[in-house]
């Protein structure tokens, strides 16, 4: 990890609202403590959502609630890399198991494409489960930077579908 990466990590931790992050790999050990650690020492806010930490994709979302950047996240070796590439993006995830559709029907245009601006409430895709068609709306405003799933392919619960740049 070079200096720039460390700087990025510190920035990311600061923005995430996490109080403290301990990261240890084979060659180094880093401990970042933010001001909010001092301020919120009496609260348990940061550890209130441990299940979010299990999904590496949840960590890089700066727009999410402070608790989303749970302290366990950097323990996974994949997390620092993910934080670097996608830290400024918000992930739109599938709320259910189903089939991912990028068009309202086969002869229609795509809901969204890479580069498109979306706002809160813009329909970005359909997840079909048991012939029930679920239009998934964006929860942020921003620009689509990546479509992570192919049209008409099966998706799992919580699977990342889109990356949105909220800036």
């Amino acid at each position: 990890m070079d200096l720039k990466e460390i700087q990025n990590l510190i920035k990311f931790v600061a923005r995430s609202g996490a109080a403290e992050v301990n990261l240890e790999t084979e060659d180094f050990k880093i401990n970042i403590k933010t001001e909010s650690a001092v301020n919120s020492e009496n609260t348990t806010q940061v550890i209130s959502m441990p299940q979010m930490a299990a999904a590496p994709a949840a960590a890089p979302a700066p727009a999410a609630a402070p608790a989303a950047a749970a302290p366990e996240a950097p323990a996974s070796p994949a997390a620092p890399a993910a934080a670097e590439d996608d830290s400024k993006y918000v992930t739109i995830k599938s709320p259910m198991i189903g089939t991912f559709y990028r068009r309202p029907s086969p002869d229609k245009d795509l809901f969204v494409n890479v580069g498109d601006e979306v706002s809160e409430g813009t329909v970005v895709c359909i997840i079909e489960a048991m012939k029930l068609f679920n239009e998934i709306e964006s929860e942020v405003s921003g620009k689509i930077v990546k479509v992570l799933v192919d049209d008409q392919s099966p998706v799992e619960y919580d699977q990342p579908l889109f990356l949105v740049d909220p800036s």
Binding site: P95, V123, I136, E137
Partner: peptide, 14 residues
């Protein structure tokens, strides 16, 4: 036949 179309935001049915 039944055709249900739901609208979801933030992982909830709206």
């Amino acid at each position: 036949g039944v055709l249900i179309e739901a609208s979801l935001q933030k992982g909830r049915i709206q």
